[in-house]
Computed example of a mutant assay.
Amino acid sequence: MHPTKLLRGSKTRYLENKKILVGLTSSIAIIEAPKLMRELIRHGAEVYCIATEETKKIIGEEALKFGCGNKVYYEITGDLEHISLYNECDLYLIIATANTISKLANKIADNIVTTTYLMFKDKPVLVVPVMHINMYESIKENLDKLKYITPKIEEGKIKIDIERIVKEVIDKIGNKFEKKVLILNGSTVEFIDDVRVITNLSSGKMGIALAEAFLREGYEVYIIMGLGEEVPYYIKSFKVLTSEEMLKKALELGEEVDIIISCAAISDFVPEKKEGKISSDVEEITIKLRRNIKVLKKLRERFKDKIIVGFKAEYNVDEKELIERAKRRLEEYGLDIIIANDLSKNYFGSDNIEAYIIKKYGEVKKCHGSKKEVAKLIVSEVKQL
């Protein structure tokens, strides 16, 4: 097995058992092709590559072989590569110059890339235009005859946007998973006035690690994200600010999922909001806080039969007290699992965590390591429920 294939499924299983043909034409943008093909493989795909002879002046065959882990084809031989690859593959992705786009639009077949395109009359084809903006505008009429990915334009040129391309491929042929997980993540904010807020320093790293771990196990994952780390492009995410917005979105999305996990740092208290902006000239202000809604409790009241997992973060408490507080929360909210951690050991934003996985029947497991490692353990425990 080519070492590149060891990447398969390292991010998600959206393209598991999918075979993708990548066609390359002579644009300098194809130097990004190995990265693009390896990213498709990380989502589970088997990738094949064909290219015009002119591309050899821009990128070598060995670099492309490194990218896809398979032989690269430059011409049609007695093996009838255009037919065999059509039979083999689920989607054809073409990195196309202005010249190639015009040929495709007018069904001209004069090389392996354009000839293979004519074979894919009943299978999905996505064209990625790569050229100067002037050329793009000149051939837009031809491009509009094709199914293409909206281009990324920088410095007057259309460039390869790997994340956008992979997302389009996933949307077009990606697997749909039966089991669904909703993760509440990041920190919420509560408004003091129309300008200022109170919040906390949660990074959202734990929730993202959990989302990635569930994706690798073949779950459909949704994240409701407050403030914090940027959610990877391949995870379906919904941005919110306040705890009220987070609850509203969770009640909406919760209808469609099997598992709900809240590792969000949701505000415990909400200020009495002042209209407008409090003057910065005053020497002192008093902010009155009231107790906030308990999002997890509301979710359990609505979704009595779903698996619900919560997190309980404390600061500088001993192990026994941490576990006892977490158990009380688990029982009060009717959770299936609760994860307890002490922020004095690994503060917000840390890549590591020491935590206790506590099940509703009393079993307690201590775990520590990177958040990615602990996320795998949590997913394993949830799968056993």
Rank of each mutant, 00 (worst) to 15 (best):
K176V: 02
F177K: 05
F177T: 02
E178Y: 10
K179F: 00
K179S: 12
K180D: 01
V181L: 01
V181W: 00
L182C: 03
I183M: 06
I183W: 01
I183T: 02
N185C: 14
G186T: 06
G186F: 07
S187W: 07
S187Q: 13
E190P: 02
I192N: 05
D193T: 04
D194P: 05
V195A: 11
V197N: 10
I198H: 07
T199Q: 06
T199D: 14
L201M: 10
L201V: 07
S202N: 10
S202I: 08
S203W: 02
K205N: 05
K205Y: 05
M206E: 09
M206F: 08
M206W: 09
G207M: 04
G207L: 04
I208T: 15
I208D: 13
I208A: 13
L210V: 00
E212L: 08
A213F: 10
A213N: 06
A213V: 01
F214T: 03
L215A: 00
E217P: 06
E217L: 07
E217N: 13
E220A: 09
I223T: 00
I223M: 03
I224H: 05
M225W: 10
G226I: 03
L227I: 12
L227S: 15
G228S: 08
G228V: 06
G228R: 02
P232D: 08
Y234H: 04
I235V: 08
I235G: 05
F238L: 06
K239V: 02
V240H: 08
V240T: 08
V240A: 08
L241N: 15
T242W: 01
S243Q: 13
E244A: 14
K248S: 10
L251V: 06
G254C: 05
E256C: 08
E256Y: 11
D258L: 04
I259H: 00
I260M: 06
I260A: 09
I261Q: 08
I261E: 13
C263L: 15
A264P: 01
A265Q: 05
A265P: 04
S267G: 13
F269G: 07
P271H: 07
P271K: 04
E272V: 15
K274P: 03
K277G: 00
K277A: 03
I278A: 06
I278K: 11
S280A: 12
S280M: 11
D281S: 15
D281V: 14
V282A: 04
I287V: 03
K288R: 14
R291N: 14
N292Y: 12
K294G: 15
L296K: 00
L296M: 10
K297V: 06
K297L: 14
K297H: 14
K298G: 08
K298T: 09
L299V: 12
R300V: 11
R300I: 11
E301M: 05
F303A: 14
K306R: 05
I307N: 10
I307T: 14
F311V: 08
A313P: 01
E314I: 07
Y315I: 11
Y315N: 14
N316D: 15
